[in-house]
Amino acid sequence: MTTLILGLVIFIGVHSLRIFADGWRSQVRTRIGANAWKGGYSLLSLVGFGLLVWGYGQARLDPVLLWTPMLWTRHLAALLMLPSFILLAAAYVPRNGIKARVHHPMVLAVKVWALAHLLANHTLADLVLFGSLLLWAVLDFRSSRQRDRAANSVYPAGTLSGTVATVAVGAVAWAVFAFWAHGWLFGVRPFG
């Protein structure tokens, strides 16, 4: 559990700089340059991510059960992942109406992903991992929206074709993950 927590502290810590220390972040980035900042940020993110994945895998070997899971929560989580994948696609597909409306679809995707996994899982490691990422996503979304308001940010209007493409890409990615990749990668089949 220690490795999982250390990974979360590093990964979430790096991703929380804009939430809690935006001024400091901007000063350091200006002083060392954008490329050096991105390199350090990426390196720390990868180290944190690697530690949290390894720590979570280790915690799954000797799980601390918190409650008895119910089958319906697993199916609900699998269905909640559909909008999560669509939101994730909205972060990348240009000129879609979802991004035009919510402005930060990737953070919302993390919120839905973390909530879905909290519903479906029942160990202490699950609570630590998914609960931490859900809390981070709530705070990050709030902070991002505040920065948008302060900067009077305007997002490009979405188009019907961009929105349809977003939904299609997200739905296909969800289906591939739900019916094949999740089982292959993590040994758990959402619908199996």
Score class of each variant (00 low, 15 high):
110 V>K: 03
119 L>E: 09
123 T>M: 07
125 A>H: 07
108 L>K: 00
127 L>G: 11
126 D>V: 00
101 R>L: 15
114 A>W: 01
108 L>N: 00
124 L>M: 11
93 V>S: 04
98 I>N: 01
100 A>S: 09
119 L>F: 14
115 L>K: 13
127 L>C: 12
109 A>D: 06
104 H>W: 12
98 I>W: 03
93 V>K: 04
118 L>Y: 13
107 V>N: 00
94 P>G: 11
116 A>C: 12
91 A>F: 03
111 K>G: 14
119 L>W: 14
127 L>H: 11
111 K>S: 14
92 Y>T: 15
107 V>A: 03
99 K>S: 01
96 N>M: 05
103 H>L: 00
122 H>W: 13
95 R>E: 13
108 L>T: 01
91 A>N: 14
129 L>D: 04
111 K>L: 15
115 L>T: 15
106 M>F: 00
93 V>T: 04
103 H>S: 00
100 A>L: 03
92 Y>H: 15
95 R>Q: 13
94 P>C: 05
99 K>H: 03
111 K>V: 14
95 R>G: 10
121 N>R: 07
93 V>E: 06
91 A>E: 08
100 A>E: 05
96 N>T: 04
122 H>C: 12
103 H>F: 01
121 N>A: 13
124 L>N: 01
125 A>C: 04
106 M>N: 04
106 M>Y: 00
116 A>M: 09
116 A>R: 05
113 W>L: 07
128 V>C: 08
96 N>R: 07
118 L>T: 10
128 V>L: 12
104 H>S: 00
120 A>F: 09
113 W>H: 11
126 D>I: 02
117 H>T: 07
106 M>D: 00
108 L>R: 00
118 L>C: 14
91 A>T: 10
94 P>H: 14
119 L>I: 06
110 V>H: 02
105 P>K: 03
101 R>S: 12
122 H>M: 08
111 K>Q: 15
117 H>G: 12
108 L>G: 00
110 V>Y: 01
116 A>F: 15
95 R>A: 12
105 P>F: 02
103 H>E: 00
113 W>T: 02
114 A>P: 06
114 A>G: 11
129 L>V: 08
110 V>C: 07
116 A>N: 06
94 P>Q: 12
122 H>K: 13
98 I>A: 02
95 R>W: 15
92 Y>P: 14
124 L>I: 11
104 H>E: 01
119 L>T: 03
118 L>K: 08
114 A>V: 14
92 Y>F: 13
124 L>T: 05
112 V>N: 05
95 R>V: 13
124 L>C: 07
104 H>M: 04
123 T>Y: 09
100 A>H: 04
120 A>K: 06
113 W>P: 03
120 A>M: 09
